[in-house]
Amino acid sequence: MAAIRSLSHLLRQGLHLNAATLIPKTAPICQTRCMAQKGMTKPHPTLDLDALETTVTDMQSGKYKRKTVRYAESDQSTVLTHDQIVRKFIVLIMKGGNKDTARRIMDKTMEEIKRRQVREFHRATESQKLQIITDPRKIFNQAVNNLKPVLLVTSVKRGGIAYQVPVPCPEKRQLFEAMKIIKAALAEKTNSRIPFHEKLATIIMDAAEFKGKAMDRKIEILKNCERNRAYAHFK
């Protein structure tokens, strides 16, 4: 009642109504946003099978603690082939919410990489065999690490003109940028009709060896940064 009385009092006085005056300082500015943040503080559910198989007696012994956790993601699983970085890439190449298709393509890609490497392995001499990596997940990780850019350009407006300003790429964003480079390399058109997973496999395997289309793209980004180095002080 007090609030309403004060409101009508203000109106009667003929003052300009400002939202900030109505809200007490102690209240949160946006309540829904705060709720989301509260939920995000919970830890992710574990994918460790040893921990999942614990019984009640283990809980009592103090080896594991009971905690409230977030809901599991729809594509998280306890299968040992599950890989977090590959999972992120699947989400990136997905189109129109068809995660099933994206996952199948990625499975095929991994198989293709492995097939090529194993094929090479069995045809190589003993000394060459030591150098061949046949684990596709290792190759994928290596490719992504090689493609992580150190610099990026962002557009900054000064005096009505947009400048391309080189800035250091934050470490959190590097993984995403590397994956985006692979995706952009995929979109390039070729004359011959190659299946998607084979194309992806060649790009990843080339990137692991510092060559190929994706690597060219990364070098192009760095060159663009160097071209615009005169504007570096804008930010």
């Binding site: 999942l52 198989e53 729809s74 998280q76 306890t78 299968v79």
Partner: peptide, 16 residues
Amino acid sequence: KVCLNHYRCCTSIVHG
């Protein structure tokens, strides 16, 4: 039609 998520939902139950 395949329900892929089915396995994911149930693995922990089966292993547990």
